[in-house]
Amino acid sequence: MPVFHTKTIESILEPVAQQVSRLVIIHEEGEAGHEMPDLERPVFAVSKAVTNLVKVGREMSTSTDDLILKQDMPQALNKVDEAARLLVEAAKLSKIDPLSKPARMKLIEGSRWILQGTSNVLLVFDESEVRKIVQDCKKTLDYLSVAEVVENMEDLVQFVRDLSPILSRVTVEVCKRTEDLTHQIHREVLNRCVEQVKTLAPILICSMKIFIQILSQDGKGVEEAAENRNYLCGRMSEELNEIIRVLQLTTYDEDEWD
């Protein structure tokens, strides 16, 4: 099973994770007593990258309406910041003594923290992006709940006008998300749900139209028409709720599938 639950996060962290584990192996193999190269330039590049990431992250947590992001992002950024400080200290120490053991320890620790910190930053950000899609799914559920009170063509037209843009946004966003997921089962479930929602939407509208037509004529069979409409509405809501559930799963939720 993949460790990272999106391809984006995987492509960012996997190469550095490999490097960090190799560094740890070298260290565990006894350091070989080699001298450390001059690390001033590469450490400066890392520090600069940390400064830029922290800047973007702080701006994001300041401007967002997402309270969880606002709360979690600064902590994640602090970890990256601390990691950069460790690396700067390590570079200074190793410049004075290229065989310095504390310098080597700080380098390993700093690199690990960069990896963990960047991972946390990306996860906090990713969860926030998922919450945006979930919010749209919930909005769609709210619109669907109105279906049962639509009793004339004018209201049906308005209903379609309200539902269509949000439904189309949800399907596009979920499809985009699905493509980015590394977890095969999550991908399959989301794809299936989106297809179901797309299929059911026009059938639901059609059932609402039939209900309205019967209601405006002799009313014969109106109960069955309402039942059919409610069934379709319920099916669409089930699919949307399943989308919400699976969107919030990560690869760490494997037990769910056992």
Binding site: T8, S11, I12, L13, P15, V16, Q19, V20, R22, L23, I26, E31, A32, H34, E35, M36, P37, L39, P42, V43, A45, V46, K48, A49, V50, N52, L53, V56, G57, M60, V80, L87, L107, S111, I114, L115, T118, V121, L122, F125, E129
Partner: peptide, 29 residues
């Protein structure tokens, strides 16, 4: 914005990997 966050995280990860490569380069030489 969101894509900028991903871009900056990628730059940081790359520069960290390059730093470690520099250290490893000496160790493995």
């Amino acid at each position: 914005d969101s894509s900028e966050m991903v871009r900056q995280a990628r730059i940081l990860a790359q520069s960290t990997a390059e730093l470690i490569q520099a250290i490893r380069g000496e160790a493995e030489a």
